[in-house]
Amino acid sequence: MANKGWNEFEIGAMLRTFDGKIDDIAGTRQEDRAYSENSSFVASVADWRIEKPIFSKDFCIDCQFCWIYCPDMSIIARDKKMIGVDMDHCKGCGICVEVCPTNPKSLLMFPEQADEETELAQWPAKDEEKK
């Protein structure tokens, strides 16, 4: 269906999110789902970003504030742990950084072209002034 133009699109046609049968979507993680070419999951908005979040796990307390408040399903949480950012779907809004409660923050925004390893190596230290 995805490759058809409007003119070939049949009235009443349904777009299917998954290929084949799926019985328990709520119990199936993204990596185990057979997304069809009609799911926006297979697309990317990475080119919307001017800034991107980088995640440093050293100080992360797995509170999941970033997971619940990310508008773009881009904080990857598995087994109650924060494990990283989905860079295909992150729009670079910066909400995750704002809501991260650790000192120093476990997520910070950087220019899109910043090098992750370099930034992680010079991650800010704890700010003693803040309580």
Binding site: M73, S74, A77, C90
Partner: peptide
Amino acid sequence: FSTSADRFEGANLLCPG
């Protein structure tokens, strides 16, 4: 709650934030 598997997907066109 964070063990939930979202049924709403990214790369939608809502504004950042």
